[in-house]
Amino acid sequence: MSYTMRDVAKKAGVSVATVSRIMNGKGEASPETIAKVKKVIEQLNYKPNLLAKRLSERKSNLIALLVPTLNNPFFPELVREIEKEANKNGYQIYLCNSDDQREKVEYYLDSMVNHYVSGAIINSLHVDENDLSILEERGIRTITIDRANFDHSYSAITVNHKAGAQSAVNHLIQDNHCRDIVFISGPRDEKSAIDRLLGYKMALEQVEFPIQTKVVYGDFETESGYQLIQKLLMDGEKFDGIFSSNDAMAIGAIRACYEFGIQIPEQVKIVGYDNINMTSYLHPRLSTVDQCKEEIGALAIKELINLFNNRSEKPNHYELKPKLIIRESSR
């Protein structure tokens, strides 16, 4: 009978990630746990999937890219940047759109193995360290981008959304003297949305004069930004500034303001987040926070190629700082 790493983990009472780390000599476990895992490996006569490793050594030119949605304009633009960088280096992208569903994530994780991809770029809330460990066991090098809700021992790129949000809110308060600000947050359980909310609160904590604030929660899509601001206006709420957790919701908010005859930026200043392409063609052009699509694309491919070429290379963690782009919507 052929056993897998999952079988070892189950019998030893630990996670697949722990087994993977111990087998790769990375430690990060107690001596007792290491001894127990090694004993189970010996009992089951477990051997890593050598066929998968041999296949990975063929250096397939396919890199899987798992994204949460294509409805948010940011992600198609991110895909384009990653694909452009991959093509420059002789690799093709296998695009996997999960629609933020665990069932689809599992399908694509299996599909990555079946397609013999060399590497996987993961941007999903529904992937855990066990998933990454299984891919790595099969010779698929991995790097996560931004949305992972957990710390892990593989390569990762994160964006400092707290700093990005803080700069946007500081701009509304300090540069534009906004005193009644609405923050359109993303989903309550989404890591980047949580970080942007924390950045918003950090900016408010530094202010020594009273600021009226309202936090409403959307889903990162244009319609939710439109409906949230429309409801506030229908309820008679007054505000002079809006910070949106992404550009798509900011565009919906702008539409709602115009329908109520509110002029931007004369009556309400608005700042979005993402710096998607269309923001520079709106009227007025939307101020936003650029979260480094080009840099993410270049860095993700560079890191994977480095991992392909140096199998013993230790994974790296990178943190990027977003940049505030000031345009007419907040001048």
Rank of each mutant, 00 (worst) to 15 (best):
K162Y: 06
S329T: 14
D290I: 08
L233H: 02
R21K: 13
G139H: 10
G261F: 12
N123D: 03
I305S: 09
A120Y: 01
Q212M: 12
I93V: 15
Y154D: 01
S244C: 07
R147F: 03
E328C: 05
T222E: 15
K231R: 15
D151R: 07
L320D: 10
E32S: 07
Q230T: 11
A298I: 13
G225M: 11
I184M: 02
V215E: 15
N275P: 04
V14N: 03
A148F: 08
E85C: 02
Y318P: 06
C96N: 07
R54H: 07
V105L: 06
H152D: 03
I251N: 13
K47R: 12
P322C: 11
N49R: 04
P315H: 01
P31A: 01
I251C: 06
I211D: 13
L320H: 04
F75K: 04
I34F: 00
P76M: 05
K53E: 11
Y200S: 01
V105I: 03
V113K: 15
E190G: 05
I270R: 11
E294I: 13
N89G: 00
T288N: 06
E303L: 12
K59H: 14
A163P: 01
I254S: 04
P265H: 13
R21P: 01
A168I: 01
Y94P: 00
D235S: 05
D128N: 15
H152N: 10
I270L: 12
R188L: 12
G119P: 00
H152S: 05
I194S: 09
N24W: 10
F209P: 02
R147K: 11
D99L: 13
I173K: 09
V182T: 08
F243Y: 14
A203G: 04
S245L: 01
P265E: 14
N123V: 05
D146E: 14
K11N: 03
S56D: 08
Y116M: 12
D274A: 07
P73Q: 01
K191D: 07
S111P: 00
S15M: 09
R311P: 12
P31V: 00
G261A: 07
R188N: 12
R196M: 08
Y226G: 08
I34P: 05
E266Q: 15
A253P: 08
L172D: 07
H283T: 13
E221Q: 14
K323L: 06
L70I: 15
I211G: 13
K88G: 00
I93C: 03
R6P: 00
Q166E: 15
V182G: 05
D128L: 00
F74V: 04
D247G: 10
A12D: 03
K104G: 00
